[in-house]
Amino acid sequence: MQSIDLPLESSPVGAGGYAAGEGRGELAHVMPARVLVAVFAALILLTILTVAAARFDLGPANLTVALGIATVKATLVALYFMHLRYDSPFNALVFVTALVFLALFLSLTMLDAVQYQPDIRSYETAPDSGFLAH
């Protein structure tokens, strides 16, 4: 019972479920050691970079730079450590879907929450409002 309409493995599946040309034992791509080490080194370098960047004040770009570096790191982890580069594209789609829906949740909630802040501030600063009496 093979279901191949939405391919779960990126390599073509032959009889017995093993890809053509692969040995009996190879269920999935094996990551070469040098790739693992290279990704590790890149991640450490990027960590140093992000700490260093924190020393400089770039104004509103601070957050963008920090999140940008974090995203590069996360992408490296996902593509290489988590094998997404050599895996079925559907698994990557699953992961991206999570991020898309998270973005949806964050953006609509923030759209509302940021906009009603002035109401709250006006309660807070009104004299003798009794608001949040400690």
Binding site: M1, Q2, S3, D5, L6, L8, F90
Partner: peptide, 11 residues
Amino acid sequence: THTLRPPGMGW
């Protein structure tokens, strides 16, 4: 649904 559909049963 993804993995156990029989041969001939497309989406």
